[in-house]
Design a protein around this nucleic acid. Structure first.
Lengths: 210, 210
DNA sequence: TCCATATCTGAGTAATCCTCACGTTTGATA
DNA sequence: TATCAAACGTGAGGATTACTCAGATATGGA
């Protein structure tokens, strides 16, 4: 799916002012960077729009010229994360032409993902608000579906006997459970978290590779 | 000075006023019932404390005599849910003395849980706010751990070769992923959700029973 | 230099959580 | 039954915060 814009009723755009000039684009980047830092500190609920504006070195009014509301800032971060993740998966599955290669590539992807989760508290917080904000939930579901489609595309030729649409649904679930595993793993002692990620890998591979 | 009913120095008690009289206890019940209805309508973020007081037929001040703040209402509902769930699991695993019986009992429990999730939108919403409110997260983690301990207690004798602490960690993960599966399953078309729950059962049983 | 357009500013508005000083009800006891 | 202290209830208002808008400032071309 190449469509970047979300389907559905005419929602407000993610950015109020289209950053045509380079200066504006840099400002948006600075805002998002500050937002990441503030969310990492105390979560997105504790992030104050006034504080964000101050950190970014602009007035509250200017901030609201770029983003229509607070949730749009969160959404922009989520979309950026989502794109990064998909790119990572595309790279990781590029040269996979056997089940053995798939197992190895999948394990490596999970390890990478786990590393990012350990390193980026802001990311954990953003995806946790997924039920409260329907727009954010849409992003997450679309993300999981797209990633599952990538998996399915690689897996289907390797498992010609499997029903393709069932495979897609299972890949969707496996992906979602990967995120849940990460969230849990980073909130228990490190050794236990590592064991959980390992257990998840086993479960996922049994499900995906049979 | 108020009489020293404060047990711990750090955390505020779930109920501000101890309901010594029957009238008060009934009132707490009515408040929680109205809260469930309001959350089912639009989520806990959209629940207004003033609206909750109006629905329960009391003033805003009276509401705050029972609950120290809004999150305490949510927590009270979460704790109630949690206790119900644990009771359900204890019942379901009572007479399990073989792996075959375990498989059947586990499947039945998941089906029950899925049914509750489909029927109770308020429950979905409450558990989704789990990252934003640390106290709620603690309840959820403690709940998962307690339930995993129940599973482990039943499973360990059936799998004497398995390492018990590893089994406990895996049961913890499996439990958590069950919740994640439910959340996902209820937000996709019914047929796909059913397929996901079935896939989860397979994965969980492979992991738990070998 | 002058003007049109783009961008910025920050005090103010509205919505909401929660408090507190004071009024009302209850039930044990005289 | 009458009394009163403690339990319970009330709702206007304080405090916080997302978001707006009328006016100020910066920019770049003629």
């Amino acid at each position: 799916m190449a469509a970047g814009q979300m389907a559905g009723a005419a929602a407000e755009p993610a950015l109020r002012r289209q950053p045509t000039q380079r200066r504006s684009r840099e400002k948006v980047e600075r805002i998002l960077g500050c937002a990441t830092a503030l969310i990492a500190e105390g979560g997105s609920d504790a992030m104050r729009m006034s504080e964000l504006a101050a950190q970014a070195g602009i007035s509250i009014g200017a901030l609201y010229q770029y983003f229509p509301d607070k949730s749009a800032v969160i959404r922009a971060l989520a979309e950026r994360c989502s794109a990064d993740g998909r790119h990572c998966i595309e790279e990781g599955l590029r040269e996979v032409h056997s089940l053995a290669a798939f197992r190895e590539a999948f394990g490596a992807l999970i390890d990478t993902y786990y590393g990012v989760f350990l390193a980026e508290p802001a990311m954990r917080d953003i995806w946790s608000g997924t039920q409260a904000d329907p727009a954010l939930r849409q992003i997450e579901l679309a993300d999981s579906r797209a990633n599952a489609a990538l998996l399915t595309e690689v897996l289907a030729p390797l498992r010609p006997a499997a029903d393709r649409s069932l495979l897609a649904a299972e890949a969707f679930l496996v992906f979602h459970l990967g995120e849940a595993t990460m969230r849990l793993a980073v909130s228990v002692p490190r050794a236990e978290g590592d064991a959980m990620v390992a257990a998840y890998k086993r479960m996922a591979l049994v499900q995906l590779c049979g």
